[in-house]
Design a protein around this nucleic acid. Structure first.
Lengths: 190, 190
DNA sequence: ATTATTTCTTAAGATATCTTAAGGATATAC
DNA sequence: GTATATCCTTAAGATATCTTAAGAAATAAT
């Protein structure tokens, strides 16, 4: 676990073993079983979660009771509700484990201290945020320009193994298609 | 101009007058007249632009020649194509001045040096990237959950003065509606 | 002022996608 | 191994939004 975090962090800046040990002291290992919530809708998000193993989704339930999935996160990703975390407002989305999932929890307080004690972390989280922005802009681009059929093909071609791990109705939701229509799209392939 | 930048940067971290003077040395003031391009589609983006005065859009022209606007940027915003800037790949989008616009240009090289010389900048750009992520996630949320009519109302209510500065067909494109349909939506209000 | 360019509107027919409702298939739990 | 819950498919009718085409209005250029 410590090794996994170390390898990850060293992709973005240089950290000594002492840095890693210090960082590790401020993080809390937690496990969530399938369907458990890392964060509930309308709660204020007080942490970032580094996924050691497992799969998490972010989703919102609207007035009609319909689930809207907007994000999946897998191993070696930091996941949180950034809007809630940064602005300390109730989160519009829940975070829920789709598989049994183990994470390292970084609380706001821990992070604030760590940014000062290990300044390279500032860079790591700058780069992470830039990568997230890029990913979101690519998603925006795809949704703007393509039909739902093409969004589905794009998804199964770019991350086919990931599609196996998630129920189809969640993928439909993520692609902003009804499960019924996704079903129809899939039928027409064959 | 220097004052404007200083006020802006001090919103996110503390900078002395010497810091600001140093930063300023690495930035280049440039003006673009209406319709001029800060960045052309398929070019590699080598800078971030801080808008002193004016209005810029980011857009993509598809195979059919249709323009897709995905971003507007105004005074006191940093604008760039992050994907191209970070990964040094051809930009899918152009950046174009909608009004006569004056900016401060921060090249990649300048920024790399400045991150080292003035480490607080690392924090500023971390926070900017987080804010951009939040904005993009909010946009995603709105597009997922609302009809085009509601997207339009949402826009004119949240940033009414901005709507005045931009031709309606660009707003339609940003909202992912045809100009004809936006026209119909507007008619039905009255 | 007049012309040229850019932007906005109208309307009719076409289509992608949704809604509803029901039954079938898998997986999970006891 | 049977029951229960979860997930997926089918199909018919409804609707939001697009396409095309054309002309009107506004803005900019000469």
């Amino acid at each position: 676990m410590k090794t996994q975090l170390k390898d990850y962090l060293n992709r973005y800046a240089h950290f000594t073993d002492e840095d890693i040990a210090l960082i590790f002291e401020y993080l809390e290992p937690v496990t969530f079983s399938k369907k458990q919530f890392l964060l509930k809708q309308n709660e204020i998000c007080n942490a970032r979660f580094f996924i050691i193993k497992g799969l998490v989704r972010s989703f919102h339930v609207d007035e009609k009771g319909v689930e809207n999935v907007n994000l999946f996160a897998i191993e070696n990703w930091w996941v949180t509700n950034l809007d809630s975390f940064v602005n300390q407002t109730p989160s519009h989305n829940a975070l829920q484990a789709i598989e049994n999932t183990s994470v390292l929890v970084a609380s706001r307080e821990a992070l604030d201290i760590l940014y000062t004690k290990v300044p390279q972390l500032e860079r790591v989280f700058r780069i992470i945020a830039e990568k997230l922005s890029i990913a979101l802009q690519r998603k925006d681009e795809i949704f703007m320009k393509t039909s739902s059929k093409d969004r589905y093909y794009n998804l199964i071609h770019t991350i086919p193994n990931f599609v196996q791990r998630v129920p189809q109705y969640m993928i439909a939701s993520y692609l902003d298609i009804t499960p019924e229509y996704l079903s129809e799209i899939r039928r027409k392939v064959n």
